[in-house]
C-alpha cells in the first residue's frame, strides 16, 4: 500500500518534567507511526501525557520539560537532532498545530489577517504582501468564514469562539503542512459548533491531504474523524487499534472503562454510564507495576510488580495488559 509510507515515526519517546519535587515522567516510552493522509486520535484523560507528546513533536516543550529518550523521525529526518533554527523553520511549515482554547490563542492586539499572513511570511521571504493577503483571504473562505475580505481586518475579539477556531485552522493550514496536530480543538466550544468544526476538519483533511494527530478526551470525536486510535494512560499508550476495531472490540480494561463511561447514541436502550473509579496516579511516584493497576477491576498479582508488555492482537491492534497472557498459564500446563 502506498499509505504504508511513513510520515512520522515515534519510537520509545520519553519526556520528563524536572520539577522541584522531582522528575515527572509525563511521557514514558510511547511508540507509534503515522502514514500520509492518515488521522490518528490520541485519547486519554487530562495528565495522561497526550499534549506533552504532541508538543515534543513540534518542539514546543517548555522548561522544565525535556525529551529524555527515544526518537522522532519525520519523513526520514530525526527531529530531535534539529537545531533550534531548523526546528523553527519546520514548525508551521511542515507541521502545524491548533490548540484547545481559541479565545486565548490568538494575539488580541493584531488583526486576524496580520496573524494569518505572518504564518506565511515567516516561512517564505519572497512572498509579497498582496500575495500573502490573497492567500489569507482564500484560506479564510476555505474554512467557511463569510465576508473574508472584511473579516481579515478585524481583531480576534470581534470573532466568536467558533469563528476563531476556524481562523486558527486557516492559520495552521496556510502553509500546507503535511501534519496537523490538533490539541483538543473542540473542547472549549459549544456542542453545535464542535460538530461544525469537526466537519470542517474532515473536509479539509480530504482536500489538503494532511495527516492529523487528533488529541482529545472525547471518544465520540475520535469515532467521527480518525482512522486509528491510541489510548494513553499515565504517559503510556495502553491500547492502539483501528477506529472500528477499538470501538467494537476493545481489549484493554482502561479502554473498556472509557467506552462504558461515554454516552452512546447508537444503542436503542441507553445503558447506565459506568465511571472509572479512582483517580489518575501521581506521576511523581508511579507504581512499579501496571500504571492502571490501582484502578483496574481485573488487577492481578503480576500487575503489582511488572509493567505489562504490549500484546500484539493482530491487524495493528496492540494492548498493554497482562490479561492477554493469562490464558498462557493454562497452555503451559498442557
Amino acid at each position: 500500500m502506498e499509505d504504508n509510507k511513513k510520515l512520522i515515526e515515534i519510537k520509545d519517546l520519553k519526556v520528563s518534567f524536572f520539577t522541584p519535587a522531582g522528575e515527572v515522567k509525563a511521557v514514558d516510552g510511547i511508540s507509534y507511526e503515522l502514514g500520509y493522509n492518515e488521522v490518528m486520535g490520541v485519547v486519554g484523560e487530562s495528565g495522561s501525557g497526550k499534549s506533552v507528546e504532541a508538543y515534543s513533536i513540534i518542539g514546543l516543550l517548555q522548561n522544565p520539560g525535556k525529551v529524555t529518550g527515544g526518537s522522532i523521525t519525520f519523513e526520514g529526518e530525526d527531529l530531535l537532532a534539529y537545531t533550534p533554527e531548523q526546528m523553527r523553520q519546520f514548525r508551521g511549515n511542515k507541521v502545524s498545530m491548533i490548540f484547545q482554547n481559541p479565545m486565548t490563542c490568538l494575539n488580541p492586539v493584531y488583526t486576524i489577517g496580520n496573524q494569518l499572513m505572518e504564518a506565511l511570511t515567516v516561512h517564505d521571504d519572497k512572498i509579497t504582501k498582496e500575495e500573502a493577503r490573497a492567500r489569507a483571504i482564500e484560506m479564510l473562505e476555505k474554512v467557511g468564514i463569510n465576508n473574508a475580505e472584511k473579516r481579515i481586518n478585524q481583531y480576534p475579539h470581534e470573532f466568536s469562539g467558533g469563528m476563531r477556531q476556524r481562523a486558527m485552522i486557516a492559520m495552521a493550514l496556510i502553509c500546507r503542512p503535511k501534519l496537523l496536530i490538533a490539541d483538543e480543538p473542540t473542547t472549549a466550544l459549544d456542542v453545535s459548533i464542535q460538530a461544525q468544526i469537526l466537519e470542517l476538519m474532515k473536509e479539509l483533511q480530504k482536500k489538503e491531504n494532511t495527516s492529523i494527530i487528533f488529541i482529545t478526551h472525547n471518544l465520540g470525536v475520535v469515532a467521527e474523524i480518525c482512522d486509528k486510535v491510541s489510548v494513553m494512560y499515565a504517559g503510556r499508550i495502553v491500547e492502539q487499534a483501528g477506529v472500528e476495531e477499538l470501538f467494537y472490540n476493545p481489549q484493554h480494561p482502561y479502554t473498556k472503562g472509557l467506552l462504558a463511561s461515554q454516552p452512546r447514541l447508537d444503542e436503542e436502550e441507553p445503558e447506565r454510564l459506568i465511571p472509572i473509579e479512582g483517580t489518575p496516579i501521581d506521576l511523581l511516584n508511579p507504581p512499579t507495576g501496571c500504571n492502571f493497576g490501582p484502578r483496574c477491576k481485573n488487577c492481578m498479582k503480576i500487575c503489582l510488580t511488572k509493567k505489562p508488555p504490549y500484546a500484539d492482537l493482530g491487524d495493528g491492534h496492540i494492548s498493554a495488559c497482562w490479561l492477554h497472557f493469562k490464558d498462557l498459564k493454562g497452555k503451559k500446563e498442557e
Binding site: C299, M300, K301, K329
Partner: peptide, 14 residues
C-alpha cells in the same frame, strides 16, 4: 502471577 490481587495490595501500589 495471574491470581487476582486484593484491594489492600492494589492500594499499596499508590
Amino acid at each position: 502471577s495471574f491470581d487476582a490481587a486484593n484491594d489492600i495490595e492494589k492500594e499499596s501500589m499508590v
